[in-house]
Nucleic acid binder design. Structure first.
Lengths: 185, 185
DNA sequence: AAGGCCATGTAACAAGTTACATGATTAA
DNA sequence: TTAATCATGTAACTTGTTACATGGCCTT
């Protein structure tokens, strides 16, 4: 007996993946945008923890239009057309938002290298770690300057929250790097 | 003038993606394995920071075989066949390892939710954060017990290093969650 | 008005995930 | 011996990335 199946069909109809949800969410806050502008917006607004390429935007928007979650305006300047979220789209976005994050798998490319570092020629691992440290020190510094820039003025606290996550993350890397030296003599 | 092109062709010939590199690296340490065993090994050995699905293993191995980086033994029990790394494969693995991690993009699904949390009904965000906190507290506890289990006996320090990264990462999440409360009143 | 640049769009490819087919192995 | 289970393999689909085509726009 397929109990409860019918009741879930309707909600699954609205199901969107995180990338589409991000697109919808941004569209909802910003108003009509064409695909390029959307991609640019995504980069600025959520680029620190989520990547959305231009091509993805085009594809997702096309798919979302078929489902009636977004709609396009007339063709404009360079054959571009603005896209706006529909009510159904807003519903889908909010449904996604309410469902919370499911995926919890994080991939750290560096750790793959670390795992096999024993096979690296002497000194090479130190160099790699050095590069890595430099990059992340830079990232942390950038985050801190952003934080300083926005903290005094008016700002979205949730946006600040994501920034703070980044700062904690980078500090964790920093601390880990610090103890790496001891760990490896 | 295409200066230097010829000299780089040879090295690019060996180029493998991180997932293939992981497969080669594991194969290199473990000796011949069939695809399933390899997938299982990957899960156990590097599953904490890199995912390799069964299907990926089959596809990558097939591709690697064509390039002569791995080779298969005869068909066995359930039509399975053991796969082993070739010398060329070992070279490719070491070349990848030596190149260091390039990709540095990390995706945090939770932060997408956080970014749009203002659109969430009152209290729902707290619930989501609560779930998240519980999950990660559990992860951190697990990491700590693993650490305790291996730290006294003989162990690979690089393996320990990846574990320590995980612990720092989870602690960063913990700290961030702690300050989230203050941030949002 | 000619040329290069760049925004826009599309297509091809690579990687990741999910679902399916099959037959050996095991347990009743 | 029959049924259920599970290891193995394959295929279909989704998502992510890279490369390509086109033509409007700006500069000179």
């Amino acid at each position: 007996m397929d109990d409860g199946n019918l009741s879930t069909v309707e909600s699954q109809d609205h199901h969107v993946n995180p990338t589409s949800a991000a697109i919808l969410g941004l569209l909802r806050q910003s108003g009509p945008l064409n695909a390029n502008a959307l991609a640019e917006t995504a980069k600025v607004r959520i680029g620190g923890y989520w990547t959305v390429t231009r091509s993805q935007v085009y594809r997702e928007l096309a798919a979302l239009e078929k489902r009636g979650l977004v709609e396009f305006g007339p063709r404009g300047p360079r054959n571009s057309r603005a896209c706006s979220i529909t009510e159904l789209g807003a519903d889908a976005f909010l449904a996604w938002l309410d469902s919370g994050p499911i995926d919890d798998v994080v991939r750290f490319p560096l750790l793959l290298t670390v795992r096999f570092a024993a096979d690296l020629p002497p000194g090479r691992f130190d160099e790699i770690i050095e590069e890595f440290a430099a990059m992340h020190a830079q990232t942390l510094a950038m985050y801190r300057s952003i934080e300083n820039a926005i903290i005094d003025g008016p700002h979205d606290i949730y946006d600040l929250a994501t920034l703070r996550f980044g700062i904690h993350f980078e500090m964790a890397i920093e601390q880990w790097l610090g103890e790496l030296g001891d760990l490896l003599e």
